[in-house]
Amino acid sequence: MRNDTPALVKRITALSLITILLIGFFLAFKEMPKGSAVNVNQRVSRLYVMKNVETATKMMENGKFFAKGIKPLRTDVPYTPITFGKSKNLEDGAANVVTSIVVDYRGFDTLGEVTVLFLAATGVAMLLFGKEKKRKNKTEPSLIMYVGTRISFAIIFLFGIYIFVHGHLTPGGGFPGGAVIASGILGLFLGKNGYKPNHLGLKVFESLSGMAFVIIGLTGLFSVHSFLANFLPTGVIGDLYSAGFIGLIYIAIGMKVGAELSAVVNSMIVDVEEEWS
C-alpha cells in the first residue's frame, strides 16, 4: 500500500482483512476434534501422550477420526492403545510424535536449519564487524539489577538445560532451550556495564556441538547404513533414557543454538566504530 492512499481506504482494507481472518479462525476452531477432559495431575509428557493417543484411538473406534466424506483406507488393522511408561516403540520411544519427526525422520532438515542459524549469526557478526569499543551506558546500572540478574541467570540457565534435555519427553527441545539460555545472557548484559563473555569460547563451543551433531549422524551411517539413523535402543516411553539418539541430538542442538544466539546478542550489543561513516 502506497503512502498517498487515503486513510479511509486503509481502514476499510484493514477491517475487511480482520473480518476474513476472524471468520477463517472461527471455522478452523470449529472443525477441531474435541479432546477429553484433561487431568492436570499428570506431568506434561504423560498428559501429552494420553491426550493425543487416547483421543485418536477413541475416534478411530468411533470412525470419527477422518473428516466427513472420507473413508479410512484400512479397517482390518487392529489398533492397540499405547500407555505411558509401559508401551515400547511409539515412534522410537519419543513421547511426542513431533519430536520423532523433527529429529528422526527429518533429521537432515534440522541439520539444515541449524546451519541457517549459524549463517545468520555469522552474517550479523560480519555486518557489525569493526574495532570494538567499550560499551558505554548513560549511567552505571544499579547494584540491585547487577546482583539480581546474576542470581536469576543461574536459574534461567538450569531451566534452559532442563528444556533441551527433556526434549523427547515434554514439549520443547533444542531451539527453545537455547533461546532461554541466550535470554539469560542478555540479562547479564543489562546488569553490568562492561560485561563481556568469551566470544572465542562461544564460537568454539558452538562448533564443537555442531560437530557432535554430524558425528552422531555419521555413526548412524556407519552402523545402520543411513545418515542420521537411530543406532541406540529405544527404551520405554516416559523414561529419561529412551527414544534412542533423539535426546543426544537435542542436547547438541540446544548447546549450539544457545551459544549461537548468545554470540548474536553479544555482537549486537557491543559498540563498534563504524568504518564506513
Binding site: K134, K136, N137, K138, T139, E140, N193
Partner: peptide, 9 residues
C-alpha cells in the same frame, strides 16, 4: 549521578 568512564550526560 555517577557516570562511567567514556559515558556522557
Amino acid at each position: 549521578w555517577k557516570f562511567p568512564e567514556g559515558g556522557e550526560e
